[in-house]
Design a binder for these strands. Structure first.
Length: 260
DNA sequence: ATGCCCACGACACGTGGA
């Protein structure tokens, strides 16, 4: 089972770029972020024609997450528990039959948190606390679980082209990094780091200042695996080609393969 | 030191992204 995550930065303008990648990568499940589509404007037919079932949590203009799966999805849960007043569409979860068990997958769009001297940063940290609590709950199920998405956290200096250039940014703040470590330390495995130890592999390159052309990116899209998922991990990699094509997102897809 | 680029909503440029 190939599970991918891709922050598309608007589905509407990314459909051709996305479809080219879907056809060549042929993922079973894709966690999408920043769809910027409501449930009404979501391009359902185009994705269904490619053989995918849909689970959508949309919002006008901003945010928006979705799961697309070639296998049926059950027990779809919308929104991250812990704050009923939070109206931002940043979390969706579903259960997919896999072999003689099930795979639970979540698509996560963690808040950016910039600028750090505004209410946006404490919102990010509170959201991470809620994610930690929910992740701890899901771990008690003792089933294969993948929490995948745009975490908006650069885990270490090895995951950024220039640590100094990002000093003071919400993505490298010690509090952001500590909060991500706390989640991982519940018992998760970073799929990419389980398969790769080389530094400076990226999933995002800013549109500005020629960052893509200069190879200056950051690694912020992650797949976190429960022990039962990590035991099945056979590979993980970043598909950088979509970032270099026409009308690219500023993110590129990353995937993991699990054996069932 | 700052803006660079891109998408959205909806027509002019402000907001948000990372």
């Amino acid at each position: 089972m190939k599970i991918a995550t891709f922050n598309v930065n608007s589905l509407k303008v990314r459909m051709e770029n996305l479809k080219v990648w879907l056809k060549e990568a042929d993922p079973d499940v894709v966690c999408l972020q920043e769809t910027k589509s409501t449930d009404e404007t979501f391009p359902r037919a185009e994705l269904e024609d490619l053989g995918y079932n849909l689970a959508i949590h949309g919002q006008k203009t901003y945010n928006g997450v979705a799961l697309i799966s070639k296998h049926p999805m059950e027990d779809i849960r919308i929104g991250l528990p812990g704050d009923d007043s939070d109206e931002q569409a940043r979390y969706i979860e579903a259960v997919i039959p896999a072999g003689d068990t099930v795979l639970r997958v979540a698509s996560i769009y963690l808040p950016n948190g910039n600028p750090v001297d505004t209410e946006k940063f404490p919102y990010k940290l509170r959201w991470m606390e809620r994610l930690k609590a929910h992740a701890a709950e899901l771990l008690t199920y003792e089933e294969p679980l993948v929490l995948a998405g745009d975490y908006n956290v650069i885990p270490t200096a090895d995951d950024v082209y220039d640590e100094k250039a990002w000093e003071g940014d919400a993505l490298t703040q010690p509090q952001s990094r500590a909060a991500l470590r706390e989640i991982i330390n519940l018992g998760f495995t970073d799929a990419f780091r389980a398969c790769h130890n080389e530094p400076h592999r990226y999933t995002f390159w800013d549109y500005q200042a020629g960052r893509w052309q200069k190879g200056q990116g950051i690694r912020i899209d992650h797949l976190l695996l429960s022990p039962q998922a990590a035991d099945r991990l056979t590979g993980c990699d970043i598909d950088i080609d979509p970032r270099g094509r026409e009308k690219p997102s500023d993110h590129t897809p990353i995937w993991a393969k699990l054996a069932f």
